[in-house]
Amino acid sequence: MIWICLIFSSKSFSQSPQALSRIGLFLDDGVMYSDKYITPATDAAVYQSSSGWMTSPKKRKLYAVTLGIYGNAFFVPKSDRNFEISNSDFSFFTIQDLSGNPVSTTSGPVTMPTSLGGQSQYYLVGQLDDNNQIIMESPNGVNQESIIYPYLQGSISLWKGFEFAVKYSSKVNLKRGNYQVYGFGLKHNLNQYFSGLNKRKINLAALIAYSKEDISFDFIDPITTFGTLGISQINGLVSTTQFQMSVSKEWKNFELMFSSIVNYSDFKYEFGGEKGTIDEVITINNQTVREEFNKRLQSIYKNKYIGLVELSGRYQFSKFYVQSSVAFGKFVNTNLSVQYEF
């Protein structure tokens, strides 16, 4: 159970300058912790959305349509399941173990789960004033060594060697959250300009794609004297532009493809869930606690370039194709699909 408890001496909690200052420190700690908690998952989401965009770099007949069912498997590395944090990293909280014993400031960092990790072993405790305390169990992760989800992808060949592709997955339930990806891409065949490559059955193409990834996790489910905080869910919202160069070689019904991929991703975050009822007692800068949290989350918005390579094999029988791929970089992502070409 993930929970938070605000203990107030009375229903008439005073929003004194001291208390409001302490609330500000609480929000700052929450933003700092959120960054460490969700960033590994949003980085992983880029890898998951990158795979399988190009089924083949070769030029198809005009208006040829390909439809496929895909299964994606992302393997969570051990290094991204946890992070280390110390009391000195917090302005408001101190760390306690689950038995209620404080963690010494001299004992070094403790290990907390990221959104991709396992169970938490610690509380975070802070004091608003002499009478009012916050006790929070740090959030758990999905506790999965691999994240598997299906999606659909289709493409249609256009003029001059262009091909338009779309990708869509419905919202996939994880153990403690959800994941969804959708987007579109445009491929252009390049070996049509080099007759020597055609003779050797070597195909070359470039692709640009745009995708949206929405990944969410249970964060804290607040139970307070005055109600809820309204931050029971945290979302990572990722927009990715992908640039890809691919080359393939054909041997009868088999095609082997190698791709080099560079992604530029825009990462944003927000808290969600049911509206907090504590808003009737506390407001910050004329905003609800969640609105103020989300405003401060803007400080951890980021942009990243991510490079990876992908190796893919595709086998044809009749009008069906079976294709598998593996993408390498900081993470490893695999993809398996069955396609039908009209």
Score class of each variant (00 low, 15 high):
L190V: 03
T228H: 01
N178K: 05
A206N: 12
D214S: 10
L186T: 05
T224D: 10
G177S: 06
I208M: 13
L229I: 06
V247K: 07
L197E: 05
G196C: 14
N235W: 06
F226A: 15
H188S: 05
I208T: 10
S248F: 14
L237S: 13
G236A: 04
T241V: 11
S232N: 04
Y179V: 07
N178H: 01
S195H: 06
N178Q: 13
D221W: 05
E213D: 02
G236H: 10
I202L: 14
L186N: 00
I234G: 04
E255C: 08
Q242F: 11
E250S: 15
G196D: 14
E255V: 11
I234W: 00
D218G: 09
F254K: 08
G227R: 05
L186D: 05
G236L: 07
Y193P: 06
D214N: 15
D214T: 10
W251S: 09
L207V: 04
F226R: 12
L204W: 13
T225W: 08
Q233D: 11
F243T: 07
Q244E: 02
L204R: 01
G236S: 03
Y193C: 00
K199F: 14
T225Y: 11
A206D: 14
L197G: 06
V238D: 01
F217A: 07
S248T: 08
F219P: 12
N178T: 09
N253T: 12
Y179D: 07
S239H: 01
I202P: 04
T224S: 07
P222W: 03
N178L: 00
E213L: 00
T241M: 11
S239M: 02
L174A: 03
N198H: 09
V181T: 02
K212H: 00
Q192W: 01
S195L: 02
T240P: 11
T228F: 01
F226S: 14
G227M: 11
L256F: 14
Y179Q: 11
K212D: 02
Q192Y: 04
T228S: 15
Q244H: 13
I220W: 10
P222H: 05
S232R: 11
L237G: 04
I202M: 15
N189W: 13
N178I: 12
M245L: 14
L237Q: 01
G185I: 10
T225Q: 15
